[in-house]
């Protein structure tokens, strides 16, 4: 690519020659855009810090009085950074994104759709039934206990998926299956968590 302003070749957010802000490089994936290692295991604070440092340079507020073009590019750069951190900050989304980069779309509809294993579906149906049957004075505590159980299961499976991704596992089908199950479990956890007044922050 060449700088839109001075024509010099550029490989960064800003032209080395004239310091003009450049449009976001479409070839960069989210990891490269934030300048972090291409792996599942990430330090959340370091991710956030990378995002902050880059936003300080390109955010539209820094270009409030610049020309039309730099303003547009700053907006595009800031949007791309926000998209990158949104995906990478959340471990499940990060895992799905890594699968996506390897050609597997967990959320795909139609042909590429990941079929949940019958055993997993059976288990979820039983769990749902158990939740529906909850009533009486202990229902609320019971719900909380189940939510914690499912959450623990979620964390365990997510850690496994992460390990396999970072170990370069080639079994994309198995990893996509794990990711799809994790998606499902997250929904179950959300459903189990009920709004129960002040003081309860779980």
């Amino acid at each position: 690519m060449n700088c839109w302003e001075c024509g010099a070749p550029v490989a960064a957010m800003f032209c080395e020659g004239c310091e003009a802000i450049q449009p976001p490089d479409p070839r960069l994936d989210h990891f490269a855009r934030l300048g972090v290692e291409h792996r599942f295991e990430q330090d959340p604070d370091a991710l956030a810090a990378a995002h902050r440092t880059l936003q300080r340079k390109v955010h539209p507020d820094r270009f409030a009085s610049a020309g039309d073009r730099p303003r547009r590019f700053s907006m595009a750069q800031a949007t791309a950074l926000n998209d990158a951190i949104r995906v990478l900050r959340d471990p499940l989304r990060r895992a799905e994104y890594m699968l996506h980069l390897r050609g597997r779309d967990v959320g795909a509809e139609g042909e590429g759709r990941v079929q949940l294993s019958p055993a997993f579906l059976m288990e979820i149906i039983e769990l749902r039934e158990a939740v529906d049957e909850l009533n009486g004075p202990d229902a609320h505590t019971e719900r909380g206990r189940m939510a914690r159980e499912v959450a623990a299961r979620f964390e365990g499976m997510l850690a496994e998926l992460g390990r396999r991704l970072d170990a370069g596992d080639d079994d994309l089908d198995a990893m996509a299956q794990l990711a799809a199950q994790l998606r499902y479990l997250r929904r179950v956890i959300d459903e189990l968590q009920v709004d129960d007044g002040p003081g309860d922050w779980t």
Binding site: P60, M75, A78, T79, N82, D83, I85, R86
Partner: peptide
């Protein structure tokens, strides 16, 4: 609570 600017 999505950070802005944002595009989806």
């Amino acid at each position: 609570n999505s950070q802005i600017p944002a595009s989806r």
